[in-house]
């Protein structure tokens, strides 16, 4: 019996810990993003920003603005988490287009890990912003009868977040792989362009939904 293509292949093991392909790919992306950040922020100036610095500031400010507009609050405390979420998702989604690489987000573990972080992050931010009791009372709003549904919705929201991301990226890669195996080298190029767009859109959707969830938790926007 062949292994499911949805199962993350183990690259190597560290004692009892199997290190799978999405983890290794993620390490590579982490190294790439960190190296790019270090190189790009080496010579930041206030008076005469260069082209790279201008692009960098544009990216950071755009992220800050989008998050702020979504959460209807100051985005600075949430920028590291949500901004990194977008950058990682964008690079991870697009990494699947590179020959020999497979997007980490095409595996359910990566999407679930990110959704779990968003779920836990929204709880932490909500408790820090509103206090434990007030935050917990929010689950019984507008009536205690809705408490089970509200608790369930927290979990299902994270679940849907992860499944949406996983399903889109995974299906895109599958389609490209199937078309590639059937039609040849250049036929899947339009599909790859579409996948490029889809990867960015999924990164944007995941990040915006995470911002909405965290905003609902801290009370800056109405809980969805």
């Amino acid at each position: 019996m062949t292994e499911s293509p949805l199962t993350a292949p183990v690259v190597f093991t560290l004692g009892p810990v199997p290190v799978t392909l999405p983890v290794v790919t993620t390490w590579g992306l982490m190294a790439l993003l960190t190296l790019a950040a270090v190189l790009a922020t080496r010579r930041l100036t206030v008076e005469r920003p260069g082209r790279v610095q201008a692009v960098l500031e544009l990216i950071v400010q755009t992220l800050q603005k989008q998050i702020g507009e979504t959460m209807q609050a100051d985005a600075t405390p949430f920028l590291p988490l949500l901004g990194t979420l977008f950058l990682y998702l964008a690079t991870a989604n697009l990494s699947g287009l590179m020959p020999g690489l497979k997007a980490p987000t095409a595996f359910i573990e990566t999407a679930a890990a990110l959704a779990l972080i968003v779920l836990l992050g929204s709880q932490v931010y909500g408790i820090r912003a509103r206090g434990l009791w007030a935050y917990l009372k929010g689950f019984a709003h507008p009536t205690p009868l809705l408490l089970p549904l509200n608790l369930l919705s927290e979990v299902t929201r994270a679940f849907s977040l992860s499944v949406r991301l996983f399903g889109n990226v995974m299906s895109g890669e599958f389609v490209i792989a199937i078309v590639l195996s059937l039609a040849g080298l250049f036929v899947p190029v339009p599909l790859m362009a579409l996948e490029l767009l889809l990867g960015l859109v999924q990164a944007y959707i995941f990040t915006i939904l995470a911002a909405v969830f965290i905003g609902g938790a801290v009370g800056s926007i109405e809980r969805g």
């Binding site: 290190v19 999405p22 993003l33 960190t34 790009a40 960098l56 990194t84 890990a113 990110l114």
Partner: peptide
């Protein structure tokens, strides 16, 4: 994998917070 990816992402958040944001 799930745990490692979560840790990886949190490390990346820290790295980008320190070196980018």
């Amino acid at each position: 994998t799930l745990l490692l990816q979560a840790v990886n992402f949190l490390i990346l958040v820290w790295l980008l917070r320190h070196f980018l944001y």
